[in-house]
Nucleic acid binder design. Structure first.
Lengths: 102, 102
DNA sequence: TTGTTACTTGACAATAAATGTCAAATATAG
DNA sequence: CTATATTTGACATTTATTGTCAAGTAACAA
């Protein structure tokens, strides 16, 4: 099970790219990229898209990893975590099937 | 499918309590409670506990509704929402089974 | 109408969280 | 040691969240 950071770092290193190079492409400070790769900071969606481009990763897959990471860390310390996910799924289905629930 | 706000408001009205009374018990401005009941603001966990007490709601169940609400709204507009939840579940299991993953 | 009660709304300040920038510190390799 | 790559932390800035308050609406009774 890889975190976003691990995915990004592994791919970058496999491609033989430096933090400096990738961060320049993404147009962020390399300190930020370093932190993203160690899960100390979260990338924005714009960053993710750029990262997917330069690292030749699937954009959608990366987004899924990103959001699921965020959610996992959000509720991992709740002891009702799995129930929360089940209820959330129901709610999402409901929200999607009901336009403008307000 | 009820939101947290609806749950709180319904129960409060069924018990014949006023915003003023409940907000006094929870020790918040009644404007805040009004907003919470209309999902314009999110309660803190402390508020939720107090609310569960005075409204005779199950504390854990309310917390589950609260967190799942938050997650549902967070990802409802992603078209990969259900996949996200599946991946998140795996990550949580992984995180829980691995002490101090860092 | 007038007054009362319950609730809502929006502006505002205070607080906290996320973000970006930078330079110094620490590796790691030659 | 030198040079290059990465990490760390302090700091300022921006953005969200939160609480407070007073004025606003709505429903109803007198």
């Amino acid at each position: 099970m890889e975190t976003i950071g691990q995915i990004l770092r592994n791919k970058r290193q496999n491609l033989g790219l430096l933090l400096r190079q990738v961060s320049a492409y993404v147009d962020i400070d390399q300190a930020i990229l370093s932190k993203i790769e160690r899960n100390e900071r979260k990338p924005t969606k714009e960053m993710l898209e750029k990262l997917a481009e330069i690292l030749k990763l699937d954009k959608d897959e990366l987004l899924i990893q990103f959001i699921s990471d965020k959610i996992a860390y959000e509720i991992v310390d709740e002891d009702c975590a799995s129930k929360v996910l089940k209820v959330a799924e129901k709610k999402i289905k409901y929200l999607k099937s009901n336009p403008i629930p307000n």
